[in-house]
Amino acid sequence: MNDTVALAEAALARTSAPRLRLGDPVDLGGSARSQVLRCRVDVGERAGDGAGAGDGAADGLPSTVIVKRFLSDDGAFVRETAGLDLCPGTPDLLAQDAENRLIVMSDLGDLPTLADLLLGDDHDAAWDGALTWARALGRTTGSTRGRVDEARSRLAAAEPWDADADLRTGLDRLLDALPSTDDGQERRAAIEAELAAARHLSTPGDAAVVSPTDTCPDNAVLGPDGWRFLDLEGTEVQHAAFVAAYALLPFATCWCVFDPPPGLTDQLLAELTAGLAEHAPDVVAAPGWDTAVRQACAIYLVVVTGWLWKSTMAGRELVGPAGRSPSYRQLMVSRWRWGALNLRADLPALSAAFGDAAAWALDTWGPGVEPTGYRAFR
């Protein structure tokens, strides 16, 4: 921790505030890939010195900052710095150290997340918060259209995501959950043809935006000026339909996944689309927009099946924090059931496979894997 603080001070010294010193670091958890600290800001020769040292807030500087150090992933550092620079509605990037994969950013404080609202007791606050989150996400990503080329240039230094490989693995695992039949090869071919029809999303053209990608409920905080988005280490240039999929599914790759109440996701998609339309009206007005969003959802569902397969088969109880997340099996059944109900018109073969997988899971694992709703809407 002391080494990280020293590196952060050195990074700040190379900016316009060379006399900033950091003290009282608090570990905010991070992950296996990163260390995240909140540090008090002082001004002076050394944090805590008497004469010449003082609270940064008194000098018009922030009283605390967030320091994030990536421990093993050069690409995550590249993506997060690009996202902080290019996406509005995110913390301010104050300093960076590429050699040590470290960034210093503004501290937004201890604000409620969308996950807090959805898992709380206030129905109206959760419903209204989710809708304003969706509008803010659409507005934020839509506003980046003019910076797509810059983002691609900067992200070239990060190893690209092999989406095709993850899609193949996910399809293999989905088919593993289906009963063996004589028409197995025909069924696979039909699903592959439907997924191939969605490949246009990988070359988004004018529909490209810069997105944090991991726009989960716990990565959005609600402050006095509205929603702000955190954790940008997955920043990517992608088709806007993949952003919209987070509203329709909802929350495509997240741990905070419960069954939404009727009507919520339709309103979420409408709000996100309206936010996008402020900057990209041509994208959301295109005849194939609704189909593209459902295709993006289908891709996420297949990919997530592969990502979570081992933990799901092992029956791991918690996808996220204890008491705040479903089990892996509950999440997977919820996702498969969603695909079965919502993809019939555009991807009928894949929809049928999701339905059969959900039926197999309930028959194999029992009623204990039935998905439940968000606490705020029960």
Rank of each mutant, 00 (worst) to 15 (best):
M1C: 09
E9Y: 00
P18A: 09
P18G: 10
R21G: 08
G30Y: 07
L37T: 11
R40K: 15
D49N: 13
G54C: 02
D59A: 15
S72R: 15
D74K: 10
V78W: 03
G89K: 02
P91T: 04
P91A: 01
N100F: 01
N100Y: 03
M105Q: 10
S106P: 13
L108S: 09
T113K: 01
L114F: 02
D116I: 04
L118G: 01
A125D: 08
A126L: 04
T132D: 10
W133F: 13
A151F: 08
A151V: 10
L155G: 05
L155V: 04
A158D: 07
D162N: 14
D162S: 12
D164C: 03
L171Q: 01
A177K: 01
A177L: 15
A193V: 02
R199Y: 10
P204R: 05
A207G: 07
V210R: 02
P212C: 06
T215Q: 13
G223P: 11
F229C: 07
L230T: 06
G234I: 00
A240Y: 04
A241G: 13
A244C: 14
A247Y: 01
V257N: 10
V257K: 08
D259F: 02
P262M: 03
D266L: 09
Q267G: 11
G275Q: 06
A280D: 14
A280L: 15
P281Q: 09
V284K: 07
A292H: 11
A292N: 13
V303I: 15
V303A: 11
V304D: 09
G306Y: 04
L318Q: 15
A340E: 13
L343G: 03
L343I: 06
L347A: 06
L347I: 03
P348W: 08
S351C: 07
S351L: 08
F354H: 10
G355L: 00
L362I: 02
G368I: 01
E370I: 06
P371V: 00
